[in-house]
Write a protein that binds this DNA or RNA. Structure first.
Length: 353
DNA sequence: AAGTCGGGGGT
DNA sequence: ACCCCAGACTT
C-alpha cells in the first residue's frame, strides 16, 4: 500500500502524456474555435470516428464567421452520420453568439463560456484548459473511470450528482502549471491504458498512485448501474419515384429525433388500421404502386430501434406539402439524411435501375 | 433524477 | 447482447 501523492501523480501523468500522446488534428492548433469544434464532436463519440469529420468540418468552416453564416442544411450535411445532430445546431448558435457579442473571441471564464449553447460543464473545462491553459476541471467518462480507480471512489457514476465528486477531486489535484496536459492526460490514459475492460495496469504510468491497483479492484471499478433496454418501432418505408425521375422526400420536424433531417416517406405499423395506400394518399398526397420489395432494415439508436420494411415503386400525384420535396438523384446527394435512410438509399442505388 | 438525443466499435 | 464513447438539454 502507498498513499496517493498528487505531486508524483501529476508528474508521471504529464510526462507520460507528453511522450505518448497520439497525434490528433485538433492537437496541432491552439485556435479556441477549433478546440471547441473538436470537443463538441467528441461528445459521446470516439476519436477515430471524429477525425475525418473534424478535418472536413474545419475545411468547410475554417473560422467562426464562416460557420456563423452557413445555412443549416449545409451544416447538417457536414454532420451527417456523426449523430446527435443538435450538437451541430447548438455549436452554430454558440459561435454566432461569440461573433456577435464577444467580438469573435471565445470567452475565457467558466461563467461566460457556460452560457453558450451546447457548452456544458465538461466542454467548458476542456476548452478553458486546452485552449487557454486555465486550471479548470474537465470531467468526462474517461476521467471518472480513471479517478474512480486511482482514488478508489465507489459512487455510482451513472448518477448525475456523482460528477461533482470527480470535479472536486480534479480541482484538488490538477496541475496548475499545465492544466491542458493534465486534463488531456487523464482522458488519454482512460482511452488507451485505463480502459473499461482489461485495463493495462502494467503499462500504466500512475500505477504507483493507483489505489484500485494495490487493492486488486481495478476490474470492479467504476461502479455503474445499468440502463434499461430500448423499445422497437416498426415502419414501412417508401422509395417513391415520379414520372420525372424524382423521389419524394420529407423533412423531419425541427425538434425531436433527427430534427430537420430528410427521409423517405414512412408509416408506423401502429397506424395500420387504415390501408397503407390510403395512408400514403392522406399523409403524402400520392398514389403509390408498389413494384419492388427492398427487404428489411434495422437501425439501433441509443434509446430505441427502428425495424423497417422498405418498398420501391412509382408515385402519381403532385404532392405539394411544404414538408416534402421531389428530388433528383443528384439533389438527394445534397440533403442531410440520417444513417437509416442512407442505408436504404444505398441499397436502392446498388440494386440498379 | 430520469428521459431524450446517433452511431459505431469492442467484447 | 450489452457496454461504452473527450455529454448536454429538457422535463
Amino acid at each position: 500500500m502507498s498513499e496517493f501523492n498528487k505531486i508524483t501523480f501529476r508528474k508521471s501523468l504529464i510526462e507520460w502524456y507528453l511522450e505518448e500522446k497520439r497525434n490528433l488534428p485538433w492537437r496541432e492548433t491552439s485556435d479556441p474555435y477549433k478546440i471547441w469544434v473538436s470537443e463538441i464532436m467528441l461528445q459521446q463519440t470516439r476519436v477515430d470516428t471524429v477525425i475525418p469529420y473534424y478535418n472536413r468540418f474545419i475545411d468547410a468552416f475554417p473560422s467562426m464567421e464562416e460557420l456563423a453564416s452557413a445555412d443549416e442544411e449545409k451544416l447538417l450535411k457536414q454532420w451527417e452520420g456523426l449523430g446527435y445532430y443538435s450538437r451541430a445546431r447548438n455549436l452554430q448558435a454558440g459561435v454566432r453568439e461569440v461573433v456577435e457579442n464577444y467580438n469573435s473571441v471565445v470567452p475565457q471564464t467558466r461563467e461566460e463560456i457556460s452560457t453558450l449553447k451546447g457548452v456544458g460543464p465538461y466542454t467548458a473545462g476542456a476548452i478553458l484548459s486546452i485552449a487557454y491553459g486555465r486550471p479548470e476541471h474537465a470531467v468526462d467518462g474517461n476521467v471518472m473511470r480513471v479517478l474512480s480507480r486511482v482514488l478508489l471512489i465507489k459512487e455510482d457514476i451513472a448518477k448525475p450528482k456523482t460528477r461533482k465528486i470527480f470535479e472536486q477531486a480534479v480541482s484538488e489535484i490538477i496541475d496548475v502549471q499545465d492544466p491542458s496536459s493534465f486534463n488531456q492526460g487523464l482522458m488519454e490514459l482512460g482511452a488507451v491504458i485505463c480502459t473499461p475492460t482489461s485495463p493495462k495496469c502494467l503499462l500504466c504510468p500512475v500505477r504507483e498512485n493507483c489505489s484500485a491497483f494495490f487493492a486488486g479492484e481495478q476490474n470492479d471499478l467504476p461502479i455503474k448501474t445499468k440502463n434499461k433496454k430500448t423499445k422497437a418501432l416498426h415502419y414501412d418505408i417508401y422509395v417513391a419515384q415520379n414520372e420525372h425521375k424524382q423521389f419524394l422526400m420529407e423533412k423531419r420536424p425541427e425538434t425531436g429525433l433527427l430534427a430537420n433531417m430528410y427521409q423517405f416517406p414512412m408509416i408506423e405499423h401502429a397506424l395500420k388500421e387504415m390501408d397503407t395506400i390510403l395512408l400514403l394518399q392522406e399523409r403524402y398526397a400520392i398514389h403509390f404502386s408498389k413494384e419492388i420489395d427492398l427487404g428489411t432494415f434495422k437501425h439501433v439508436f441509443s434509446h430505441l430501434t427502428w425495424e423497417m420494411n422498405c418498398f420501391v415503386g412509382h408515385a402519381v400525384g403532385e404532392s405539394q406539402l411544404d414538408t416534402c420535396k421531389w428530388l433528383t438523384i443528384e439533389e438527394i446527394k445534397e440533403v442531410p439524411m440520417p444513417v437509416p435512410m442512407l442505408k436504404i438509399w444505398k441499397a436502392y442505388i446498388e440494386r440498379g435501375n
